[in-house]
């Protein structure tokens, strides 16, 4: 039987899933939750402390911080989603090719992977964005490219292990093509390892997006990016600590829950 039903990972896993679910709902339908337009300015009401009307207070332009955080979830998770999808689409086939076929393709792919992995992800991302300019899709694409080597590495190592197993030899003797063995024999047997890596890449994509936006290289204002809010909030850290704390907490909660889930899956491998 394939295991279905309630995950058996304990409180940590349940909490992680709950946190993730909350953010996914926020990202999917932010307007249902947020009481204000995240871009609506109210200069007279600027820099208010948290209150009944403004749950997390207002920022330097009088915008509702709670509404901006809710809408920020879409930017954060959307970036992660696009980045993960892209690195899966590129990394998994290349990793399978490298690990199963070996030889020259493996040499070429592995050396290129080494080159990209040798460079700090954030530096590569900053350089590419400096060249291409900042737009939300580009930020996600760049993060996806930067994390593709990680996925190539993990897929390759699993493919190397699985290709030596008897069922690969068996299906070869039945006349299976290389593509069949890569995608139908090895891939389904690698899905747990790939799943773990995917969760880790998602969590890192969120950190990178926030970092880029914090540095003013990510999502352009006035769009509500958590990283950019953290940057502005830094200026008011002594007078209004809540401004920077709430977006920071959101980043931590989201990243932590993704990492805990990844760790949980890995322990059960």
């Amino acid at each position: 039987m394939r295991s279905v039903g309630w995950p058996s990972g304990g409180i940590g896993q349940a909490a992680s899933l709950a946190v993730l679910a909350v953010f996914v709902v926020l990202a999917a339908v932010p307007s249902l939750v947020s009481p204000f337009d995240p871009l609506a300015q109210d200069i007279p009401g600027r820099l208010h402390a948290p209150s009944g009307a403004h749950l997390f207070g207002t920022d330097e332009l009088g915008r509702d911080i709670f509404s901006r955080i809710v809408h920020g979830a879409r930017i954060s998770l959307g970036t992660a989603l696009v980045a993960v999808a892209l690195s899966l689409a590129m990394g998994v086939p290349l990793g399978l090719l490298s690990g199963y076929v070996g030889g020259t393709p493996d040499e070429v792919i592995s050396r290129l992977t080494d080159v990209v992995l040798a460079l700090p992800a954030i530096l590569v991302a900053m350089t590419i964005i400096a060249i291409t300019g900042r737009n939300p899709v580009m930020v996600a694409v760049v993060i996806g490219i930067v994390y593709t080597p990680a996925l190539i590495r993990i897929t390759r190592s699993v493919a190397l292990r699985i290709r030596a197993l008897p069922y690969v030899a068996a299906i070869r003797t039945a006349g299976a093509s290389t593509a069949y063995i890569m995608f139908r024999t090895i891939l389904p047997n690698s899905r747990n390892e790939i799943y773990v890596q995917t969760l880790l890449i998602a969590s890192q994509a969120i950190v990178i997006e926030a970092s880029l936006s914090f540095l003013g290289l990510g999502i352009a204002p006035p769009a509500p990016s958590w990283g950019a809010m953290l940057q502005t909030g830094r200026s008011y850290l002594h007078a209004m600590p809540w401004y920077g704390v709430f977006p920071g907490l959101c980043i931590v909660a989201l990243v932590l829950s993704l990492q805990l889930l990844a760790g949980d899956v890995r322990r059960r491998l």
Binding site: L165, P166, Y167, A169, A170, R184, T185, P188, N189
Partner: peptide
């Protein structure tokens, strides 16, 4: 093959 369990793809 010798080990029928190992010669079948476990997830299909």
């Amino acid at each position: 093959f010798q080990e029928p369990g190992a010669a079948l793809n476990p997830v299909i």
